[in-house]
């Protein structure tokens, strides 16, 4: 038998001999032909290494640790035990957690559009070239963002006071009977007001800088075509800053789900209006630091993190879809 073994899948046009040689060679090399090994070059790691290390340490490690924690349950009596996904099962049917989620969702649906609407209005106004003292307005709208959140809440907490604060003064001066902003029914509204005040300037700045980047030629072209102010806004300005709008919305969505500072600080002056599970973050915080339920708190944190990610992703998807149209 001088004829080489014919492979059943021998490609047409390739002689049997050639095919056999190539096939044999391949088999040989995959069997460990050390001569042909390419030395791996590791020097690239020196460049990305520091980043990877810090990334792993600061971002991945806490996340992995939280997931690890969430699979256990440590009780005051009985110690630590592995419970698998039981904490997640508990979270799924925990009315307190879902009440908190519902609350921040309502907050998101009401507060974010108002805040972004105001920010957009301010940015367009500043960009309209019809205002004098633009830097002054820009600075004063942005100023609240520079006030530390804790201080901001203290200021507002004082103004909300219905016996000695600003609300009390208004009531006394006008003979009005405003309800207490710190009462249970109004507290979410009051928090929304604080958050709006704090972050309108920040979002305005994002929009304003995006508007500044719009090429001047577009405006000139629009003017030549006879577009009025509003036509320019809707046909040029808004489409041009769509990216900034989406980013700001995503930030605000995340911010809403992570609502913590404002209710947490207001709790000291209105403890009876803000429950320990007012927002998902506050709930996780109280679970771990007041109830020592670190494991369940970790599960809550991860579930709310996933929900936040999904919603933020949907927002991004929605924005992109519109862009594609």
């Amino acid at each position: 038998m001088t004829v080489a073994h014919v492979h059943p899948q021998q490609p047409a046009g390739v002689s049997t001999e050639t095919y056999a040689t190539v096939a044999v060679g391949r088999t040989a090399s995959s069997g460990g032909n050390r001569r042909k090994r390419v030395r791996r070059n590791w020097s690239g790691w020196w460049f990305v290494g520091p980043f990877m290390l810090i990334f792993a340490l600061v971002f991945l490690a806490p996340l992995v640790y939280a997931i690890y924690l969430s699979l256990f349950r440590e009780t005051l009596i009985g110690g630590n035990s592995f419970v698998g996904l039981e904490n997640y099962g508990m979270a799924m049917v925990d009315p307190k957690f879902w009440e908190a989620m519902l609350r921040v969702s309502i907050f998101l649906l009401v507060q974010v559009p108002i805040m972004l609407g105001l920010a957009l209005f301010a940015a367009l106004a500043l960009d309209s070239a019809r205002l004098r003292w633009v830097p002054f307005y820009r600075l004063s709208i942005f100023l609240p963002y520079a006030v530390p959140g804790v201080v901001a809440v203290m200021i507002w907490g004082y103004m909300y006071g219905s016996q000695f604060g600003l609300v009390a003064d208004i009531n006394r001066f006008f003979g009005a009977d405003l309800p207490s902003p710190l009462a249970e029914n109004f507290i979410l509204l009051s928090i929304g007001n604080i958050v709006t005040w704090e972050f309108v300037g920040y979002n305005m700045l994002i929009f304003f800088s995006a508007l500044k980047a719009v090429p001047q030629e577009l405006y000139e072209a629009a003017e030549i075509d006879g577009a009025g102010t509003f036509r320019t806004i809707f046909s040029i300005k808004l489409p041009s800053i769509r990216g900034a709008l989406i980013i700001a919305t995503i930030f605000s969505v995340i911010g809403s789900f992570q609502l913590f500072n404002e209710p947490s600080i207001l709790q000291t002056i209105a403890p009876n209006s803000i429950t320990t599970y007012f927002t998902p973050n506050l709930y996780a915080f109280n679970l771990s630091f007041a109830g020592s339920q670190f494991n369940y708190a970790a599960a809550i944190a991860i579930v709310s993190g996933v929900i936040t990610m999904v919603v933020a992703y949907l927002v991004q998807l929605g924005g992109e879809k519109k862009e594609a149209k």
Partner: peptide, 20 residues
Amino acid sequence: PYQGYANNVFSDSVGKALGS
């Protein structure tokens, strides 16, 4: 033996009633 937790969640029930 878990009074800290008890005082913390006081506001969710009794505190709420005191407020409203």
